[in-house]
Design a protein around this nucleic acid. Structure first.
Length: 593
DNA sequence: TTCTGTTTATCCAAGT
DNA sequence: ACTTGGATAAACAGAA
């Protein structure tokens, strides 16, 4: 039996037959990319499921899937997107009779894969769900940078030292990075190990075999939970190599409906949004209103404001500099496959065709920031948050260091997000601007709002308060509204410039060392988090937030600096900058250098 | 005891 | 030749 398995699983002749919806490219699986690519693609999508048809095709013979694929299929077939080992066994046996008679060696391999492959997360059972073994889920956000979750395999002669433990995205990243349908409640602690935590309510009777279709159904985002989960380390998705996936993805073979993709996007992009908002809320309203005797915040709301674990949406690096985002967490991180990462998945499907299709928002500004024509002197798109280019060569050097951004970003044709078709209405419109908004939040948080009259923003304050009370678990539309309100708030208070040059008060000191900057950290963080993210960008449809110039953080920091000078004291709102020390940013550039 | 999970070692096929 | 990714086997430890 093992011999049969061996021959079947190791041979590549089955690759063309792979059908893994998203990742798979039946169309050109063996075309330009070759078997290797196809092979890789086979595991690209953590949310891949097995088609009934496919299953039927391989009923009799050796399934042309790798064990990792089988596991993925199995897990994804479960409504809960998690399965116990025995369930996985069962599912495989049920769907591939071959394994029923294949002895037990394959089970060992399954276990081996589960343990070895970072894509798979062990999910502890809940207390009320006793049983043997843990659940296994798919990590859509495998940590791929920094510390390995496990010691590297002891190198031996002739063996690569980086795999399979390597965080090298080419291997694991490829397999797992793509956004999937991970449950929003899935928490990953990538610092200590791969651990996923499901909310108790999610534990329940799975129906592993009930479905062969993957969907976000039961775990889709009924609401975007921006809540932070306290003590767990936030995930730091790093998409050092987002493109490989996309490159291998044949264009339009979308596994997800666009709404689903959007949902995934939401998670990725809102990962630290809650932190930003929360931070803003606390820094601005809490501070201000408390002094004005208007505060009505629950004490708990302040508890999570600053945590040591910071999450940073770092498309191409693991840098985490946003202190306020520390509250972020897992809950948020999961979903998205690393935020940007998943984007690449779809982004490449139609690198150009989908360029900004979010037009549903009534308020949407006709000319989007990402429009190439608006980028005056830079090849890079300021609004792109950056996920880095789709060119592998560019990813290889995704250094987070500002000085290197210029080069590495200059070729990015389209930011993944840009290419997404946003279909979730208001929220979708914010996709390209979330980072900017978050950045603004962060910047705003560094101000001293104590003496600022925020009474005109009672509504916003109340909204945020409610959000706080709800642990930032908001509906997409609510988030969108909140984004708009906050953005408006920023515009009015001068945090961002309402019109004309919309550069936010962000300095990229690293880019302009000669200029003293109060935002050194900000600048760093900014670039760090979104290497080519525009300092600030108005939401589509926000009239006074015209598209940013192409001034990317790595390229035209001087604009931001200049603006900062006069925006800090905006009109009626005299804002005192907090001492530099108060500015949240403990990021150490040296650490990544 | 069995199952589960981790780890190490080795082999093979394919790619570079 | 070397690297890479996957498969297989096995040893081992811990939990149910």
């Amino acid at each position: 039996m093992t011999s049969e398995l061996e021959s079947s699983l190791t041979s590549m002749d089955w690759l063309p037959q792979l059908t893994m919806r998203a990742a798979i490219q039946k169309a050109d699986g063996q075309g330009g990319h070759g078997p290797g690519a196809a092979k890789k693609g086979a595991l690209l999508d953590p949310s891949t499921t097995l088609d009934q048809e496919e299953a039927q095709q391989h009923k009799d013979g050796k399934p042309p899937y790798s064990y990792a694929s089988l596991i993925t299929f199995a897990i994804n077939s479960s409504p809960k997107k998690k399965m116990t080992l025995s369930e996985i066994y069962q599912w495989i046996c049920d769907n591939f009779p071959y394994y029923r008679e294949a002895g037990s060696g394959w089970k060992n391999s399954i276990r081996h894969n589960l343990s070895l492959n970072k894509c798979f997360l062990k999910v502890p059972r809940s207390k009320d769900d006793p049983g043997k073994g843990s659940y296994w889920a798919i990590d859509t956000n495998p940590k791929e940078d920094t510390l390995p979750t496990r010691p590297k395999k002891r190198p031996r002669s002739g063996e690569r030292a980086s795999t399979p433990y390597s965080l090298d995205s080419d291997s694991l990243g490829m397999d797992c990075r793509i956004s999937g349908s991970a449950s929003p409640t899935l928490a990953i602690n990538t610092v200590t190990n791969k651990v996923a935590l499901y909310s108790p309510e999610q534990d329940g009777s799975d129906s592993p075999r009930s479905s062969l279709n993957n969907s976000l159904s039961d775990q889709s985002l009924a609401s975007v939970n921006l809540n932070s989960v306290g003590s767990v380390h936030s995930y730091t998705p790093v998409t050092s190599h987002p493109e490989p996936v996309s490159l291998q993805q044949p264009p339009p073979q979308p596994q997800y409906s666009m709404p689903e993709r959007d949902k995934q996007l939401l998670f990725s992009d809102f990962e630290d949004l809650s932190a930003s908002f929360r931070s803003l809320y606390k820094s601005v309203f809490e501070q201000s209103f408390s002094q004005q005797g208007l505060m009505g915040m629950p004490s708990e709301s302040t508890q999570q404001t600053h945590t040591s674990c910071s999450y940073q949406h770092t498309p191409s690096s693991s840098i985490s500099t946003h202190p306020h985002s520390g509250q972020n967490n897992l809950t948020n991180s999961i979903a998205s496959g690393g935020g940007p990462v998943p984007l690449s998945h779809s982004a490449h499907n139609s690198p150009h065709g989908q360029h900004l299709s979010h037009t549903q928002h009534p308020q949407q500004h006709p000319t989007h920031t990402q429009h190439p024509s608006q980028h005056t002197q830079h090849s890079q798109h300021p609004s792109q948050h950056t996920q880095h280019s789709q060119h592998p060569s560019q990813h290889t050097q995704h250094s987070q260091h500002p000085s290197q951004h210029h080069q590495s970003l200059s070729h990015q044709p389209h930011p993944p997000q840009q290419q997404l078709s946003c279909t979730t209405g208001h929220l979708a419109d914010w996709y390209p601007n979330l980072d900017a908004l978050k950045e603004s939040c962060r910047i705003a948080s560094s101000y001293n709002w104590a003496d600022v009259d925020l009474s005109p923003f009672q509504g916003l304050k109340e909204s945020m308060r409610q959000a706080e009370l709800n642990n930032w678990s908001l509906e997409p539309t609510q988030i969108a509204d909140l984004c708009s309100s906050i953005n408006q708030f920023f515009a009015r208070t001068g945090v961002i410039q309402p019109q004309g040059s919309v550069q936010p008060p962000v300095c990229h000191s690293s880019m302009h060392p000669s200029k003293p900057s109060q935002h050194i950290n900000t600048g760093n963080m900014y670039m760090d988090s979104r290497q080519n993210m525009p300092p600030l960008m108005g939401p589509p449809g926000y009239p006074h937030m015209p598209p940013m110039s192409s001034a990317g953080p790595t390229m035209t920091g001087h604009h931001a600096q200049m603006n900062q000078q006069h925006m800090i004291s905006p009109g009626n709102f005299q804002i005192r900058r907090m001492p530099a020390d108060d500015i949240q940013d403990d990021f150490d550039w040296d650490s990544i250098v």
